[in-house]
Design a protein around this nucleic acid. Structure first.
Lengths: 255, 255
DNA sequence: GCTCCTTAAG
DNA sequence: CTTAAGGAGC
């Protein structure tokens, strides 16, 4: 059993990359962010041709999330319940084995102290409450996606330069810790020794070539899942391709 | 000796098509319209690599004309002298054999009775006066380009439907006749029997596949040149290519 | 940088 | 339908 999270930055543009990833890895579940596709234009037939079911929730230009799965999922839920939000950032579903999967695209926040940063914090607080209530119903949960938070200094190519900067501020990191405190493990961090930790490299300034990345895409899981989790890998080769997403996929494999 | 006119609808996008045309036809002179390239971005080195000199006059987004030539040309002139116009629509030059070449991109006119139609008519009147004065100095002249006028019913796929419509209105056709009256022959019309007369097919509604075209790109010449003109061909195959211009090149060959 | 949308022009 | 610009967002 394996599960992937990938911010594709346009599903339409990245469809060939997704096909390659599926041929190479054949994950059981794929959580996509930034599909940037209205539901009416979602490439459902193409996804089905690749032998996946799809639960998707999108809008044009911005955001958009989807869960692709080999097996049919159930209890599909879009957005954060009881939280007004016109942005398509969350889709949750229960796998055939009963694991609750929450696919999330946390707001970027633009810059510390911007209006969007305030929105990011309040959005993430609402998300934490949603997870807290989910944890009352499900014992086995995987939360994965683009969190737009680099949890620790080692998750940033230049921790000094990023001190209190967006993606790294104390407020963001404290909220991330609060989420983990609900009973989740940051699986890559706990399972992987590698110093190659980054999942995102800015398109600008040759950041990828220069190895200037951050780790902002995460797979969090309850202890039950973590005990079965054999490996978490960052599929960096997909950031090397022609016309890549700025994010690499992250894959967790279970026993 | 051969000369080509081609509205490329972006020189940048159509550069590979231009290369193919040059390999296939190797014209001595190529007159381009709608290069849509500022002079600073004109691909001069690439043109020189193809063994052409270039006289160009462009702007971003719209218009832009260029004369490419195997031999150096002289007396290069941009625009209509003494006519204020911020649109790059005319370049003229004298060939090594003394023929005056006028490359023109006539305003489209949007729709009969629009403001742009009024501009088109006054622009074309100024152009006629310019040609009249040129004819006093040069005995051998070729005017070629996108005239945005279909001179006769047979130049339109549905003459009835286009009655008094843009590109076919009496006012436009009368001005075209007035230009010919200065001593020019519409070489394709005079030299070619073929019923395949069209040079432009709208990108929309599969116009090319459905053979819904117009003849709006012309090569006009003084009698001296016409007597040497062996053939005028519409290079329709370039409209069949991948990512084509909406116009086909038109080529005149001289003895 | 890269993606998207909108607008403008044809 | 195709092109290009301009602006937002990341």
């Amino acid at each position: 059993m394996s599960i992937v999270t990938w911010n594709v930055n346009s599903l339409k543009v990245r469809f060939p990359h997704l096909e390659t990833m599926i041929k190479d890895c054949s994950p059981d579940v794929i959580c996509l962010q930034e599909t940037k596709t209205e539901d009416a234009n979602f490439p459902l037939a193409d996804i089905e041709n690749l032998d996946y079911f799809a639960s998707y929730h999108g809008q044009k230009t911005y955001n958009g999330v989807a869960i692709l799965s080999r097996e049919r999922v159930h209890e599909v839920q879009f957005g954060i319940p009881n939280f007004e939000d016109n942005q398509a950032r969350v889709v949750a579903a229960t796998s055939s084995t009963g694991t609750r999967i929450i696919n999330v695209y946390v707001p970027n926040g633009e810059a510390v102290d911007s209006e969007k940063y305030v929105y990011k914090l309040s959005w993430f607080r609402a998300f934490i409450e949603y997870v807290r209530s989910t944890a009352k119903t499900y014992s086995s949960i995987i939360i994965l996606g683009d969190f737009n938070i680099a949890p620790r200094g080692e998750d940033v190519y230049d921790p000094e330069a990023f001190h209190e900067k967006l993606l790294c501020s104390d407020q963001e990191r404290t909220l991330f810790e609060e989420l983990l405190g609900l009973g989740f493990l940051d699986a890559f961090h706990e399972r992987t020794e590698s110093s190659e930790r980054f999942t995102w490299w800015d398109y600008r300034m040759n950041a990828f070539r220069r190895k200037l990345g951050l780790r902002i895409d995460h797979i969090l899981m309850t202890e039950s899942e973590f005990n079965r989790c054999a490996e978490v890998k960052i599929l960096k080769e997909f950031r090397k391709m022609e016309r890549p997403s700025d994010h690499a996929p992250v894959m967790a494999t279970f026993m």
